[in-house]
């Protein structure tokens, strides 16, 4: 039998989806610390979490998604503060004072108290292209949680609110469990906070 008739198959990559997800995770990562400052509900949620707490949202398998090639060329502070998207992870750290920091996508040298991982790239795409809402995605086992589960639920509530801020209603409705009614989030508060988040997250 000639085994060369059946060659090994090294599956390829989907670079465009990787880039898209990197940008989405980076956007959310940049937005959450700002949202934690401007929205009282998010602030309350983060107070429930312990201090000196590091969590991440990532796409599995970790080995398949190394940091983007240009990461080496970026200055250290850019990488440390996540000023540009360069990987498929989103790392958030709550310091001793309870302030939320976005720490980029580099997991090296860090210890995580909560790790939420999308099982594969398509699962992440389902959530981040809003074909499935986050709670439905969780019910479908699209992502797995390592760590303290109540913290994960807290984080998902935070994510819901941030998505309402970041996305127009027509998209956010598909992404969140329940779009808040006008009396829960008055339009004026939503739009003002939205402008603040976009400005502060992506300018400095």
């Amino acid at each position: 039998m000639n085994i060369n008739k059946y060659p090994e198959v090294k599956p390829g990559r989907k670079p465009l989806k990787r880039i898209y997800l990197a940008i989405m995770l980076w956007t959310v990562g940049k937005a959450i610390p700002v949202a934690a400052k401007v929205d009282p509900e998010i602030k309350k949620e983060f107070e429930k979490l312990p201090k000196n707490f590091t969590l991440r949202l990532m796409v599995q398998p970790e080995r398949a998604f190394p940091l983007f090639f240009y990461t080496k060329m970026l200055p250290g502070f850019v990488v440390k503060n996540g000023m540009l998207p360069y990987g498929l992870q989103m790392i958030l750290h709550i310091d001793a004072q309870g302030k939320v920091h976005y720490q980029g996508a580099d997991p090296r040298g860090k210890k995580f108290d909560l790790s939420m991982a999308f099982k594969n790239l398509e699962a992440a795409m389902m959530i981040f292209s809003f074909r499935e809402s986050t709670p439905t995605g969780y019910a479908h086992d699209r992502f797995v949680v390592e760590g303290y589960l109540p913290c994960a639920t807290t984080f998902m509530r935070v994510l819901d609110i941030v998505q309402v801020y970041l996305l127009p209603k027509i998209i956010a409705k598909r992404a969140v469990k329940r779009y808040p009614k006008w009396f829960e989030m008055p339009p004026w508060r939503k739009h003002i906070n939205r402008i603040i988040i976009y400005l502060r997250a992506f300018t400095f």
């Binding site: 059946y6 198959v9 599956p11 080995r63 398949a64 998604f65 594969n120 790239l121 398509e122």
Partner: peptide, 17 residues
């Protein structure tokens, strides 16, 4: 089927058809 393995670390040892 092979596309489903994109972006994973799995290598298919062969496709015996």
């Amino acid at each position: 089927f092979v596309k489903a393995f994109y972006d994973s670390t799995v290598v298919l040892g062969g496709i015996y058809d």
